Computed example of a mutant assay.
Amino acid sequence: MLLDVIERKPESGDGLSKPPVVFLHGLFGRARNFGFFQRRIGEFKRTLALDLRNHGDSPHGPANYPTMAEDVFETLTAHDAVPAVIVGHSMGGKTAMMLALRHPAAVERLLVADIAPGAGGFQQSHTLAADLAALPFPASLNRAEADTLLSRVIPEADVRNLMLQNLRLGENPGWTIGIHEIASAMPEIVGWPSIPEETTFTGQTLFVAGGRSRYIQPTNYPEMKHLFPHYRLETIPEAGHWLHAEKPIEFLSILENFLNAPSP
C-alpha cells in the first residue's frame, strides 16, 4: 500500500540531503504532527513524513506491524528514499523497528521515541478506539460541538485536540481515519509479533524515553539488546509519552546529534 507523504528538502545542496530522514507518527496521529522537525531538519536534509495506513490521507485496511512496515518500505522505494534514517514515535516506533528488522538495508540508522519492542503501551487506547468508533454523529458538527462529543470518552483536552484533527466537520460529519480498522487492529497495535531468534538490526539505534513515561522499562532492555545490539538509550527527564510534542527543543537537539554522529 502506498502511503501519503509530506516531503521537505533543502532549496540547494542536494549532496547534503542524503540519507533522507523519515518520520512515522504514533496512534491517532498524522504526518503533519512532525511539521516542526521537518522544517528544521529539512533545511539541510531531505525529509519525508508519512501518514501510516488508516491515518491521515493514507488508505485504510487491516493493520499489523509487518503490514505497516511493508507499506513504509514500498512507499520509500517508490520515492527513491532508501536507505533512510527512520524516526518513529510510539506505534510509528514499532513500525520503524519492524522495518529495520525486515529490511535492514533500507534503514541507515534508527531512532525510536518512547516505545519498546514488545507488547505493551497505549494504555487506555485499547478501549478508546472502540469507544470512538461507536460515537453517534449528528447531521452537522462544528469544532466546539465536536469537542463536546469527544469529551464523552476523552476527558483530557490535549488528547481531544489530537483527535479533532481526525474528524470531518460541517454537514455529514464523521471520521476521516479508518477508526473501525484501527479498533479491530488494537490487539496487534498493543502487541508485538514473534521475531525469529536470528533476526537483528545491527545499525545505529537510539531509543529516546520520556522520563515521566512508563512505555520503556528495564524489563524491555534484554529484548532491545537482542534485536538492536548497538542501541543506546537517552531520556528527556520532564517529558511524558508525547516527548517530541512536550519537549520539542530537547527532542530536536537529540535528533540533530544523532543525525550528525559519525557511522561506526
Rank of each mutant, 00 (worst) to 15 (best):
D158A: 09
N161H: 09
G120A: 06
G88D: 08
A209R: 15
V208A: 12
D147A: 14
V107H: 03
H89L: 05
E108A: 10
M97H: 07
T199P: 03
T148H: 08
A96G: 06
F137T: 01
R102N: 04
F201Y: 15
T205W: 02
E156Q: 13
E197L: 12
L110D: 04
E108F: 08
P117H: 08
M97S: 03
L135N: 06
L206E: 10
L141N: 02
E145Q: 12
S194F: 04
G88H: 06
F137M: 15
E197T: 14
H89I: 12
L110S: 05
G92K: 06
V112F: 14
V85A: 10
A144W: 01
R212K: 14
A134S: 15
D131E: 04
G178F: 03
S213V: 02
E197D: 14
I195S: 07
N161G: 06
R143C: 05
Q204E: 10
L128S: 03
P83C: 14
G170N: 07
Q204L: 15
H103R: 15
P173G: 13
S194T: 15
A100I: 04
D158K: 09
L111K: 11
T127M: 03
A183F: 07
G118Q: 03
G203V: 08
G92A: 02
A84K: 00
T127L: 14
I115F: 12
T176Q: 10
T95C: 06
R152L: 14
A116K: 01
G178R: 07
F201E: 10
E145P: 02
R212N: 15
D131M: 11
P196H: 11
R168H: 11
G118M: 00
P187R: 15
I195Y: 13
L128G: 01
T200Y: 14
T176R: 12
R102W: 09
L162P: 00
D147H: 12
M186D: 01
A96V: 06
K94R: 04
M163H: 07
N161M: 06
I195P: 02
P196A: 15
Q124F: 12
T127G: 07
A209M: 13
G203S: 08
